[in-house]
Amino acid sequence: MTPFTTCTAVAAPLLRDNVDTDAIIPSREIKSVGKTGLEDGLFAGWRYTEIGGREPDPGFILNQAAYRDAQFLLSGTNFGCGSSREHAAWALAEYGFRAVVAPSFNPIFQGNCVRNGIVPVVQAADVVAQLADEAPEPMTIDLVACEVRAASGATWSFEIGEEARHMLLEGLDAIALTLLRRAEIDAFLADDRRRRPWIYPGANG
């Protein structure tokens, strides 16, 4: 995954509360076995003029010229609620989103964001509104300083779990993070094979 330190980009305002994972990626858009091929299905229900179609709806924010290259999304409370399907985070990442700024997130979705290199930034609704007012002027998310900076210079700090921050800063997925403890895991397994040999196939009975 690409590490995230500081990023300056356009933020697209999608100021609705309870944007659920089915709105982010409708189940009918999940056609393949893998994690890719989801980009075109992102927000499909809102983005296109008809269900299953590909005719862009000019009213939808991501279809407007100024927001074509948006890498941040501004949204309402409880972003990512609904089914825990990870496809929602995959679709956002594949489309090119690097962060979502919202007053609150669904906890499972928030975890999925971190695992997929998207920074979930929690900011009060009035801050999100102010950032939306300044869009499409590029804003900055600084994960080193844990700060959000509007184009006007206004700055707010944000909180994120230490482990999540570490993973995002280093571009580590959870597997890479865990494999840093490989020696500890191996030692545990060696010991456990003695304690519970019946759990390990191939042990002599």
Partner: peptide, 16 residues
Amino acid sequence: IGSSEAEHALATGTLR
């Protein structure tokens, strides 16, 4: 578990 966790369990033999 979820999809990412399944990958994690397969690759590391552990879960966080």
